[in-house]
Design a protein around this nucleic acid. Structure first.
Lengths: 243, 243
DNA sequence: GTTTGTGAAGTATTTCACAGCC
DNA sequence: GGCTGTGAAATACTTCACAAAC
């Protein structure tokens, strides 16, 4: 009650969504497309990047063609799941042959809209934020951090890899001006919701949240949580009692 | 085919499991307990840390009692889900009243075995690894990083917060000696599987994996993936086409 | 002979809805 | 009167298994 379905990997209560990429996995389901198109389950969408990554690795190794069985073994899922996942989008394989590695990688990348570079705003440049800013893995994956913000006047004005840290009260305006649709939150828990609100006001539609809070956002905004602590805290349940 | 069910948030192929805390969410299900006990779905286990976190926040605010409805609104799920999740473990509420915040927090913490401190080994002390090592959020959450390892001789011998970085070929032995059950992998993708193998050989049963690869581990080992890139790459699917 | 794509079947997970307790 | 705990129903997701394509 008082929840609506969203594609945040969870439901969305009166004022916001909950989500949990890493640890808090409620039952997701894509919202029905505005048109009459088939609503693809969010869980399928979340698997696609792994398919792309694995296909790109194969391509790099010179592999031209792959069966659903081979791909499944590499990834650790069933072949049927891969075939079913792909079938939501079309028919990309050849019976008796499998899939063309390069074609499938390109196709899924296009489905995910990874065939372009996306500008990203990063908020919070403490330890974690700086590690994120320095991370070299985003750029080759279609994301370029183009704006940095921090609350602490001590950090504002600093330069990280040639980008100046701006005061976080300029967030909304800057995001709107630069037409940024993706934000990364790396601020303390108690500031995160306020930052999310400002991002949304500026037009952000996708938030990667490193703060340990469930953000409340409107339904058109997707949130994925990065929550290593919760991940650890759920694994302890399974540890053997041998000590 | 060639997969067995595991509690890794995914299935487990011939030699290993796949998993994806943050991004790669296959259909999980707890393995049946060795005894005749009820097999609690992994997805429920993964929600418990959020319940604990939220309850602790309430407790800190002086709130004594909470209904499933209130808790649900705070977290962004349905009240029925919270009641169902808790019912796997017992009856903790009072009709007409709700749940005692402190009691429920303590109870779930005990279920998750968070009523003690767990020693953790961290492997890889590049940018990311150092940010993890410096992170102050693990200790209050039941985890203490007690051993650091790196492959790079340039890093070995360095001290991070008073802990010396050891060469990663001492990994297995040190983990076994110190009876460490939890490992964090923050090494480049191409080294991650080898590190996971060594951890498992040393007796690790839970791995938090920051490397962008699906690790293959035996079924008694739980893996959660932290994969911000895949998280971003799945969100782009939902971005509006307004530009 | 191999492997896809997919109805149909099988599981898993969520939600409904209400009897029973406080 | 409010709220839990839970059968039963509804949904969501995965897997089976096989006809069709190569």
């Amino acid at each position: 009650m008082s929840t609506r379905r969203s594609h945040n990997g969870t439901d969305w209560p009166a004022h916001g969504n909950g989500a949990g990429a890493a640890l808090f996995e409620a039952a997701p389901a894509a919202i029905a497309a505005a048109d009459g198109a088939p609503p693809i389950p969010d869980i399928v969408i979340r698997r696609l990047p792994i398919y792309v990554r694995t296909l790109n690795a194969l391509r790099q190794r010179g592999v031209r063609s792959v069966s659903s069985e081979e791909l499944a073994d590499l990834i650790g899922v069933t072949a049927a799941q891969i075939r079913r996942d792909l079938s939501y989008f079309g028919k990309f394989g050849k019976q008796g042959k499998g899939y063309d590695v390069g074609f499938l990688a390109t196709t899924i990348s296009r489905i995910l809209r990874l065939d372009r570079q996306w500008p990203v705003a990063l908020v919070g440049l403490g330890n974690l934020g700086r590690a994120i800013a320095h991370y070299r893995g985003f750029a080759p994956s279609s994301f370029t951090i183009v704006a940095l913000f921090d609350h602490n006047p001590r950090n504002v004005g600093d330069t990280v890899d040639g980008l100046e840290i701006l005061p976080d009260d300029e967030l909304t305006e800057a995001i709107e001006r630069e037409d940024i649709k993706i934000g990364i939150i790396a601020v303390p828990a108690d500031l995160a919701q306020e930052i999310a609100d400002r991002m949304v006001r500026g037009g952000v539609e996708a938030i990667l949240n490193y703060a340990p809070v469930i953000l409340k956002v409107p339904p058109h905004v997707t949130v994925r949580e990065i929550d290593p602590v919760s991940a650890l805290q759920s694994m302890t349940y399974y540890l053997s009692r041998g000590d």
